[in-house]
Design a protein around this nucleic acid. Structure first.
Lengths: 129, 129
DNA sequence: CTACCTCCTGGAGTCCTCTCCAAGTCAAGC
DNA sequence: GCTTGACTTGGAGAGGACTCCAGGAGGTAG
């Protein structure tokens, strides 16, 4: 079951350009090629793509960090500690971002509530006289 | 109490360039000037800056949207509904982002937990023989 | 008066993350 | 054997959000 770039692109909703770009900059490991140089994605590749997509699009982690993570990964078991440290650090940042966003969400809610009051007030004013 | 750009910059941790930039693109209202053209920030300005800083740095809302919000605001009460709609929409996006990040946080936690197991396992292996 | 500091403006430059493009190659169908 | 279509590459372009800079002016201190 050959997994071409177009199939992977479709499956993950990432453009072919983005997939090639990710590979080029070392965000995902080099993909195996057919005799004529065409990429053939394997299970492992798909896992990396899934991981990277999640960390980039959902968490917004910096590309830099993910490149470093893959680099460590490819250096083998000696980097387990370093990898874990990296993840823990990013986890911290992410948690912080979530906190920030949550407090901002509340702020927005307050603001919206005030709009509702104001607008409600106007409507009543229109109904009253 | 004149509030110069350097004071505002210090107070909010935004560079003077950023403050001028924000004003230029309509993210904050035009600031009053002294006779010689030097900005003198008032209470209202500070509130806008605080709001914008929060929405940009904490929530990551797009500059575009904030410009639109200010523009509506400056058009007066006729835009109350539109403004509220804008906020509600962004609130939704933000909530979604928070959800995404929260699920990613869990995923990171899982990954970290697995690293802990693996590394713990190694340590035990070292202690055992 | 001169020096100096902070401010001003408009425009160019930078960083990050893609995204697009031109030119070329290969496999398959007719 | 030629066309077609999906794939390849390296490099240029794009968009968002700043950030920096040159050149110039006002106010103050010595």
């Amino acid at each position: 079951m050959p997994m071409t770039i177009s199939e992977v692109s479709e499956r993950f909703g990432l453009s072919q350009d983005t997939l090639r770009y990710y590979e080029r900059i070392g965000l995902i490991p080099p993909v195996r090629r057919s005799a004529s140089g065409i990429r053939d994605y394997g299970e492992e590749d798909l896992k990396w793509i899934d991981f990277v997509k999640c960390m980039r699009q959902k968490a917004g982690l910096p590309v830099e960090m993910l490149i470093e993570y893959l680099a460590l990964f490819q250096q083998g078991d000696g980097t387990l500690d370093a990898r874990k440290t990296l993840l823990v650090e990013q986890r911290g940042r992410l948690a912080e971002k979530i906190d920030d966003m949550t407090s901002t969400l509340r702020r927005l809610d307050d603001k919206i509530a005030r709009y509702e009051q104001t607008i409600g007030g106007k409507e009543q004013a229109l109904r009253a006289p």
